[in-house]
């Protein structure tokens, strides 16, 4: 049986969208699953919108690009406007309500609104918004255990982020238990 799941993660450049995707993809690989990760790459280096797509499956993966995702992680308003209409009918969207006007959230869709930036600020830095949101995604999808993702941080975090691992572990936990 196929254990398929895909997610588009989107936000401002600098919100750690690509790191969030990498953490998830590495964790899926460690669990012995097939996985693809593809970023949007282009002319904008800073300040634009960033998004990446992660596909997880127990079988070989065809397209690493997804048009109607089964799930999304939306860190800012422009990302909601872009990806909410494309969300699959039974899909789930994790929305950072700190930066998104929740009046725009389509009530017909399965949405998890979480003030990820505010929670991250309380934990010490808004830079952990991504991990709070990823925690909420893990809870909503149940695809991978929280502990597995927390463990993978030690493996994928660049050397100069090592001292922040504990804080990120807490951010994942906060996002997971908030929803």
């Amino acid at each position: 049986m196929s254990a398929y799941m895909d997610v588009i993660m989107a936000g401002f450049g600098g919100q750690g969208v690509l790191l969030m995707g990498n953490v998830l993809a590495n964790c899926a690989m460690e669990r012995g699953l097939e996985v693809t990760y593809i970023p949007v790459y282009g002319a904008e280096m800073r300040g634009g919108t960033a998004n990446c797509t992660v596909v997880i499956d127990s079988e070989p993966i065809g397209s690493p690009i997804v048009h109607s995702p089964r799930s999304t992680v939306i860190l800012n308003q422009p990302s909601l406007e872009k990806f909410q209409p494309r969300l699959a009918k039974d899909g789930v969207q994790i929305i950072n309500s700190s930066l998104v006007d929740i009046a725009l959230v389509d009530t017909k869709r399965h949405s998890v609104c979480i003030p990820a930036t505010d929670i991250a600020r309380e934990l010490g830095t808004v830079k952990m918004t991504n991990m709070v949101a990823l925690g909420a995604w893990l809870k909503a999808t149940g695809i991978l255990p929280l502990k597995a993702v927390q463990d993978i941080l030690h493996k994928v975090a660049p050397q100069h982020y090592r001292k922040l691992i504990l804080a990120n572990v807490r951010a994942l936990e906060a996002g997971y238990s908030h929803s």
């Binding site: 690989m29 097939e34 996985v35 693809t36 990760y37 970023p39 790459y41 993966i61 690493p64």
Partner: peptide, 9 residues
């Protein structure tokens, strides 16, 4: 671009 940009195990 897919083959080059995509990360896989």
């Amino acid at each position: 671009a897919i083959v080059g940009q995509m990360k896989e195990p």
